[in-house]
Amino acid sequence: METITLSQPSFATQLRALFTIAKKDWKVFWRYPLNAVSHVLQPIIWVTPVYFMGKAFSTNGQALGFAQYSGTSDYMSYVLLGTALSNFILTVFWGMGFALKEDMDAGVLESNWLTPVSRIHILVGRTLTSLLTTTITSIIMLVLAAALFGFRPTGNIIAAVLTAIPMLVGLYGFGFAFAGIVLMMREANTMVDVSSFLVQGFSGANFPVKSLPYWLIPVSLMLPLTYGFDAVRGWLLKTNTLLPLNAEVTILVIFMFVMLWFGSWIFHRVERKVRRLGTLGQH
């Protein structure tokens, strides 16, 4: 009698698994419609103090001090673009680690791990729905914010989107590594909150990094996200960039390949260790 395994993983089955995970997350997301409203309103609430604070620094609606660093006095477009990009960073960078923590708490991580699906695919699958919902909610947020505060992108939208792609793909690498850390530490909240705040802050989500104190600028320049924020703004708002735009895009493409390799290497190592220790089911 011929022996066969019950599972026969193939490209098609992996795709089906990805689709199933995304479909499940889509169902869960719309099960709580207030969450969707919150996704749209939260970023607007967070930038409102910046809007009025900017007014306190402006003369006749022009933030001239801000223009000295950034090359634009339209600080709200600058901040809103940073906020929209931050939404995506949160989704990819931290989303996978959070998803694992959710599965741990719900007690389904171990059983998911036993399925014949690549674990990296499980992680990627958990971001698909959130990427789609983030796109929808960010567009609505920008439309609302444009009406409330003004949002005036005047540059090349296609170049900006093409620049954001290697940044986001590279962030998947970060996300894999972070998911590994969550598997090991079994705690995500404080780590995510603190590190996302710091990474977004120092990479210039809300302000030009040139305005940082001189001793913090090297930290900022070491973060690839800094060049992502800077280049997307350079294309869309025609702001002064740290490096020529082509150089920043090249950095982002290199970052993408290095991080994908490094992140998945870290994840596989940690995952093997956790399996050996038998702590996968603990939380």
Partner: peptide
């Protein structure tokens, strides 16, 4: 840090 950027290099915003 956002306020620092709004202040400007010459402190005109401040």
């Amino acid at each position: 840090l956002t306020a620092r950027a709004l202040s400007g290099i010459d402190g005109s915003g401040l």
